[in-house]
Design a protein around this nucleic acid. Structure first.
Lengths: 140, 140
DNA sequence: ATTCAAATCACCCTTTCGGGTGAAGGAATT
DNA sequence: AATTCCTTCACCCGAAAGGGTGATTTGAAT
């Protein structure tokens, strides 16, 4: 951003010198002023396009893998933090045992959490739970 | 795209008239030529930015919810039509029994297909298979 | 202080999944 | 004719998942 502004300033400064130079040239060679102005227009058009792309490219990158958690839906369904955590790991394809290990709790605990999740999400299998959770934007 | 080019042409044409007009004005009011060229530069910079945005905005919109099946990857992994079919239903959260019913084949057949799928996708659980298949763009 | 939700774990039982092996029929290729 | 691949199905077994019930602890709200 800063760099863009600086380059723009330099371009403008360079233009002034160019014009001073052209001012003399105009007397010697009788080229129309429209020609020079056309060059300037072209140059700054290119500069503008470049600047525009530079500015939006960041927005494009940002506008890609964006995920905003649907907290209202989480509340509506009454899904707790721990349950949500389990849900995320579930979506990563982990088994209950692996989730239990990762969260340092017992397998039974995870089974309880997942059972509650299935009730709240109104599903009966983990694959469906993951699907539904993605639809509701509860997970990326 | 066409519209952009036309507008650009009109802008350039307008500029020529503007310059002709300024040519007389320059005699009356003794404003420096740099001032007018600066205006032109500014104007075309804006025009360039606008054009740049116009061109990229379409790319952004196009790059949205589109799904193109990665057939080369399907071939590379040696996944058959039937297996791909099973994979899709699996991704919908269906159990093996439900898939079997939907395809009018036996449960054992689906188990064979899914086992082969897991080998080819190098996973060991259906949740992981779905995940991987989405990564590889084998399913939407 | 009491109530309540969340989190933890246990035990039971049934269903589903996944791995391994084998095999039969059919279509396409060589 | 032989080979290869796809599809179909079977059986066995162990692991994982899911359903139900009940219990303890802890922290937050009333």
């Amino acid at each position: 951003m800063k760099r863009t502004v600086i380059l723009y300033g330099l371009a403008l400064a360079g233009l002034v010198f160019l014009l001073k130079y052209l001012e003399y040239r105009l007397i010697v060679h009788d080229l129309s002023i429209e020609f020079y102005v056309g060059l300037v227009a072209l140059f700054f058009t290119g500069l503008g396009i470049w600047a525009g792309l530079k500015l939006t490219r960041k927005q494009v990158v940002m506008g890609g893998p964006e995920f905003i958690l649907n907290e209202s839906e989480l509340q509506r369904l009454g899904i707790s933090k721990r349950e949500h955590e389990v849900l995320e790991l579930m979506a990563k394809g982990l088994s209950n045992q692996e989730i239990a290990d990762k969260l340092f709790v017992s397998l039974n605990t995870i089974k309880t959490h997942s059972s509650n999740l299935f009730l709240k999400l109104e599903v009966s299998r983990r694959t469906q739970a993951v699907q539904r959770a993605k639809e509701l934007r509860l997970i990326p």
